Computed example of a mutant assay.
Amino acid sequence: MGVFSRARDIVSANLNAMLDRAEDPEKLIKLMIQEMEDTLVEIKASCAGAMAAEKRARRAFEMCRDKAGLWAQRAEMAVAKEREDLAREALAEKRDLLDQAVALEREAGQTAELVGQYQAEIRQLEEKLASAREKRRLLLQRHLAAQDKIRVRKEIRRFETADAMLRFDKLEGRIERMEADAELVDYGRKPTLEQQFERLAYDEGVERELAELKAKAAAEKE
């Protein structure tokens, strides 16, 4: 496959459609990028060669044209000296050089056209390569995000299993037993002397307030 035909196939390729059909999009786009990069190197090398060939053809064209001008001057000089034989040979040399110049000019034009095609292919392929690289970056981001999502969901499912809930229930039961044990520490314990006097003071205050309420109610009835 030639460089041009391979480049056109790559440029015309629909990346989205190819990625949708691929079983491993990351692997496919990596191969495509490598293919584009290799093709781009080849096209640039071919373009550089064509540009050099165009310059050589144009230099040769100018040289032939200059020599043709020189032989034209010699033909004029030969005529002036009445040397028609030399003038005829000089004109023949001039004609040959002009014919070569025409061929070289045509060659330079064709090579320039080829350089233009190469440059257009290079621009299109570079745009396609930039797009492929961006898609690869996005694919890698999506791949990492998907991996994180899978990991998180696995963790959630792990804690949603019956075994996990059973462990939580057992832990809750242990805590409840510890709370009950803490309450039983003081249960049935004889109050201290200070606690008994505090209780008497509390009961006395309640009785006094109750007597005041009764007296107030009796006064209102009168």
Rank of each mutant, 00 (worst) to 15 (best):
V3M: 07
I10A: 12
D20K: 07
R21S: 15
A22E: 07
K30P: 13
L31Q: 14
Q34P: 14
Q34K: 15
E37P: 03
E37S: 08
E42R: 07
E42W: 08
A45N: 05
C47E: 15
A53I: 06
R56W: 08
A57G: 04
F61K: 06
C64W: 12
K67M: 13
K67P: 15
A68G: 13
G69W: 02
W71H: 09
W71L: 08
K81Q: 14
K81E: 12
R83F: 06
R88L: 12
E89Q: 02
L91G: 00
A92W: 11
K94T: 01
D99F: 01
D99Y: 00
A103D: 06
E107K: 04
Q110S: 02
G116L: 11
Q119H: 06
Q119M: 05
R123Q: 14
E126H: 03
K128N: 13
R133A: 08
E134P: 07
R136Q: 15
L138P: 13
Q141P: 01
H143V: 05
A146M: 10
Q147T: 03
R157Y: 03
R157K: 04
M165N: 07
L166W: 10
K170N: 11
L171D: 05
G173Q: 15
D181Y: 09
E183C: 01
L184G: 00
V185W: 07
D186Q: 01
K190Q: 10
K190A: 14
P191L: 03
L193C: 03
E194K: 02
Q196R: 14
Q196E: 06
R199I: 10
A201I: 08
D203G: 03
E209T: 01
L210N: 13
L213E: 11
K214V: 06
A215V: 04
